[in-house]
Amino acid sequence: MSDVLHDPRWRTAWRLLFLSVVVGASWLAFSPHPPRAADLGWDKANHFAAFGTLAFVGLQCLAASPRRRWIVLAALLAYGILIEVVQAQIPGRDAEARDVLADMIGASIGVAVHALILRVTAPRATPAR
């Protein structure tokens, strides 16, 4: 598991996964009537889950740097706003500023979980003999 999270050779796979998650989230966000099976029962929970996942996977797509979390959060903020602008044009859907707030809460949780998991799975240096 550590290799999948820490080895840069996995970055292409993470990028493909990110693209898949963006496509899936976009399909759900832009569908006039998304399937009930994709609903967690509370609209804001859907936002937390989607943007938490996008943040975690998005962080894995970029090389480690002190700024990568801010890049991912800024990109997800723009994506969340875009979703609400588009939803305002879709019959049966409406735009809510609270949805963007829920998106950012979910993304922040995703960033925190990512940092925690990377710390826990960090390769340990073996003592020299």
Rank of each mutant, 00 (worst) to 15 (best):
S2A: 11
D3A: 15
D3S: 13
L5S: 04
P8V: 07
R9V: 09
T12S: 09
A13M: 10
R15N: 03
R15C: 12
L16G: 14
L17H: 06
L17K: 08
L17F: 10
F18S: 02
F18A: 09
V21W: 12
V22T: 02
V22D: 00
V23N: 01
V23E: 01
A25G: 05
S26Y: 06
S31T: 09
P32E: 14
R36W: 02
A37D: 09
L40D: 03
L40C: 01
K44V: 14
N46T: 02
N46I: 02
H47K: 01
A49F: 14
A49V: 11
A50Y: 02
F51M: 12
F51L: 09
G52C: 13
T53Q: 12
A55L: 11
L59E: 06
L59M: 15
Q60T: 01
Q60E: 10
C61N: 04
A63Y: 04
A64D: 04
S65F: 05
R67D: 05
R68S: 10
R69G: 02
I71Q: 12
A74H: 02
L77Q: 04
L77D: 03
A78E: 00
A78S: 11
G80T: 07
I81E: 04
L82A: 12
I83E: 05
I83T: 12
E84V: 13
V85L: 12
P91K: 11
P91H: 08
R93C: 05
R93E: 03
D94H: 12
D94T: 15
A97C: 03
R98Y: 05
V100G: 08
A102M: 05
A102Q: 00
A102V: 04
D103L: 05
M104W: 07
G106L: 11
I109S: 09
V111S: 08
A115Q: 13
L116K: 01
I117G: 01
L118Y: 09
P123E: 14
P123S: 13
R124P: 00
T126R: 15
A128P: 04
R129C: 00
